[in-house]
């Protein structure tokens, strides 16, 4: 899976948490700007595990603040398997 596809998936997922259109989320902007909180971060871990098959810590959303950064982290985890 390419980073781009992963990033799009992240944007879609975050948009669904916040119930806002996908177009409102910029993959280069920190998620915190959109009001992502610690509860969303917990949700995101479960959704990432469902989709990609590995556990990530909820602190991921702070360590890799933008959708693109998260996507590149996930892509490198996937390619190292």
């Amino acid at each position: 899976m390419t980073e781009e596809i992963i990033s799009t998936w992240i944007v879609e997922t975050i948009a669904s948490y916040l119930d806002i259109p996908i177009s409102e989320i910029d993959a280069l902007q920190p998620l915190a700007n959109y009001g992502i909180d610690s509860v969303h971060a917990l949700s995101l871990c479960g959704d990432i595990e469902d989709k990609f098959g590995f556990y990530v810590d909820p602190t991921l959303a702070w360590d890799y603040p933008t959708p693109n950064a998260i996507a590149s982290f996930i892509a490198s985890r996937l390619s190292s398997r």
Binding site: T13, S16, Y17, L18, D19, V39, H40, S43
Partner: peptide, 8 residues
Amino acid sequence: MSPRERGL
């Protein structure tokens, strides 16, 4: 359940 419903 929509993901939004899992929020605060």
